[in-house]
């Protein structure tokens, strides 16, 4: 009986996996199809004449490598900075008592609620202003994207890490203190490794946000092509009007692959990460 049920669960799992993965498969397949098959709306889920024509159109029309590296650089720096800052903030919010904690938590929630589009104008002038002081974070610089994405990824990351830092037993901290460890040492040498899964989960979300953005990219990167990011470069191909679905799917594939690689690389930690907050 149990075995039958287990078998049924296996089959259902596989069926759902197929359905969920199908749009992605179709995306890659369409990107590899010759134009004629797409025009004919060929429903066969394979192609006999795979071609990289669509990819070539996307890759050669653009300084693709540079845009790719720009996007990667922004995303990686955002992830690194956001991990450190959100971890420290989460520690303060869960393991230390001070006045105004609830207000801060509500503010973090509010910060996620404001529609991003509405903030672009104030942010534009702010970035312009900061650029006069620190040129590296000014308009037309990748630094501007880093600081803005950092600000937008922190509220969620702090909210999420809060669960993990709270779950570490206080006794551990007391024991460390008795051993003569400073709070600083405890935080970095004991707490930080303990909440690693949470850090992975938070970093995934930060990475995706920074990688996908093109609203800020098109607002702050006004002149010059050397700082363009990938979504901005691919925007040219996302034109459903021209019905060039091959190129659209190739662009979508190129945009998805790096995130996919990142996800698969961290997936084992992710599963223990997101729900890890109930352990303890």
């Amino acid at each position: 009986m149990a075995a039958v049920r287990r078998r049924a669960a296996d089959v259902a799992c596989l069926a759902v996996a197929l359905v969920v993965a199908f749009p992605l498969y179709w995306m890659v397949l369409s990107a590899l199809r010759p134009a004629g098959e797409i025009q004919a709306a060929d429903p066969r889920p394979w192609t006999l004449a795979p071609t990289v024509d669509s990819f070539r159109r996307v890759l050669t029309a653009q300084d693709f490598g540079r845009y790719f590296l720009n996007s990667l650089l922004v995303a990686v720096v955002v992830v690194a900075l956001s991990l450190v800052a959100s971890f420290l903030a989460a520690v303060a919010l869960t393991r230390l008592r001070f006045r105004g904690r609830t207000v801060l938590l509500v503010m973090l929630l509010v910060a996620q609620m404001v529609p991003v589009e509405a903030l672009t104008i104030p942010l534009f002038f702010l970035v312009r202003f900061y650029g006069d002081v620190v040129p590296a974070v000014g308009l037309n610089q990748l630094g501007s994207l880093v600081v803005v994405h950092l600000a937008f990824s922190l509220p969620f990351a702090i909210w999420m890490l809060r669960g993990f830092t709270a779950a570490v037993p206080a006794e551990l901290e007391e024991a460390a203190a008795l051993d003569g460890a400073s709070r600083f040492r405890f935080t970095w040498q004991v707490l930080f490794p303990l909440v690693a899964p949470g850090l992975v989960a938070a970093s995934v979300v930060s990475f995706v946000h920074a990688w996908n953005d093109f609203l800020f990219a098109k607002t702050f990167l006004i002149s010059g092509t050397e700082t363009r990011t990938l979504p901005l470069g691919l925007l040219v191909f996302f034109k459903p009007e021209e019905q060039d679905w091959g190129a659209i799917m190739a662009g979508a594939t190129l945009m998805t692959i790096p995130v996919l690689v990142f996800f698969v690389a961290v997936q084992r930690h992710l599963v223990s990460g997101l729900g890890g907050s109930v352990k303890g």
């Binding site: 312009r128 308009l139 002149s223």
Partner: peptide, 23 residues
């Protein structure tokens, strides 16, 4: 520099708001 027609509004407005970035 060649700009995509689609994102032109933010580029031109950006250039009006920040003459340093303007062509």
């Amino acid at each position: 520099e060649y700009l995509p027609v689609d994102g032109r509004a933010s580029r031109f407005n950006g250039a009006f708001n920040d003459p340093e970035s303007a062509p």
